[in-house]
Design a protein around this nucleic acid. Structure first.
Lengths: 218, 218
DNA sequence: ACTCGTATCAAACACTTGTTTGAGATTTAT
DNA sequence: ATAAATCTCAAACAAGTGTTTGATACGAGT
């Protein structure tokens, strides 16, 4: 059997889709296609065609299509969480801790991922959370550990609010943050006759922060 | 060909999954299965098995699986929108119009759909909006007309806020409202160690209203 | 030069998908 | 009761799925 001989190979497939090895070309092609069309609308043949590799390459380099999609999720979720954690640590360093700064650590990284590659990475993450295979849920449990840190941070910044209340507001906040797929913005554009453009990320960040901090009573 | 001989038949498949005609049994089985497992994880064979009918029944009573899923969406979205519009009319009747009452008209109907049948109907709607086939988007355009009424209502209740700002906040609000799939609540339960239970719909409604009205500065 | 691990390829695999078919049963109306 | 519409059924269909196979090419390393 071909085993996982190639499992422990190149690390982060950062950018170049042009001429990289087949493994990262598959990674990037799959990520882009899923971001565009959705999880269940992408076949192995689509991916390999876009990557310019043979059909069997997915099963050779990754063990299966399933594991490929999981690895994409793990990689991107890790990148996002690391950025958030760094900002959270910085927020907790200054005393007194500000709820606004904590919320910014949660909101800013995904909102300011505005380059093409990072936008597709974000779209992939959102799609995976919603449509992804059940194994993604396992990883989201790891996400819970990550989110719990935000909950306790907010708890110390807002001692007058109960933990249950904070968790609910965090839940609502995640609803807002996840609501930024292409379809979501399509509806907003229709609703506003193109008046509301999501391309100005800084303005969007300001709006998001204002809406959510208000919800937290800050 | 069998044409659409049975296309203009029984109207609303309200509740009884027990012993109704095959058409409504298919409707309810498909709705429940999609709500449970997601759009692309439900096959024609799953549906007909659950409904206790023959495999070909879907293509006989509805023209295709596709149209079946569309009809479910149309039916439920219509029910929800009618309730919202009724509350919106009532909110606009009293002067001066209160932004809080308008927002309640948007939030309360889906939140208080707490019977089993209506919960699955809601879950179906949310799933359709996210994972659904592209034709669902067409119907969501009709939804836009529906939402625009809320936007202009809020505009008259909050004359000091620009239309663009109102549309953005409405966009955020829909993010919160759509964030109530089973998976979403699963994460909340994990995060809170089961402390946050989404079963108390009245309490949830109060929390939602507080969070969102705060976001609107009301 | 010759092997060995790695990589790529076309072809086929077993399986599931939604849909169609044609015959039989059931109901309804005249 | 007779005929006509309506419905149900098992079986098969073509198309698409992810994966496996075995052959072949490449590229070092001793």
């Amino acid at each position: 059997m071909n085993e996982n001989k190639a499992a422990k190979r190149s690390r982060q497939p950062d950018s170049p889709p042009a001429e990289a090895n087949a493994r990262t070309r598959i990674f990037l092609a799959a990520e882009a296609l899923v971001a565009e069309r959705g999880f269940d609308a992408v076949s192995s043949r689509d991916i390999t065609a876009r990557a310019g590799v043979n059909l069997g390459a997915i099963n050779y380099h990754y063990r299966s299509k399933h594991e490929l999609l999981l690895e994409i999720f793990r990689t991107r979720a890790g990148e996002l969480n690391r950025e958030r954690q760094a900002m959270l640590r910085a927020a907790l360093a200054q005393k007194p801790v500000s709820a606004r700064t904590i919320l910014r650590a949660l909101i800013e990284p995904p909102t300011l991922w505005s380059s093409d590659e990072r936008r597709t990475a974000l779209t992939y993450l959102n799609r995976a959370r919603r449509e992804g295979p059940s194994e993604v849920r396992e990883i989201i449990r790891a996400d819970v550990r990550h989110l719990r840190r935000f909950a306790t941070a907010l708890e110390s910044a807002l001692p007058e609010v109960s933990r249950e209340e904070i968790l609910w507001r965090l839940h609502f906040t995640l609803g807002v943050l996840h609501h930024n797929s292409a379809a979501d913005y399509e509806r907003l554009a229709l609703l506003s006759d193109g008046q509301c453009a999501p391309d100005d990320r800084e303005a969007l960040l300001a709006r998001l922060l204002a809406f959510i901090t208000a919800g937290f009573g800050v």
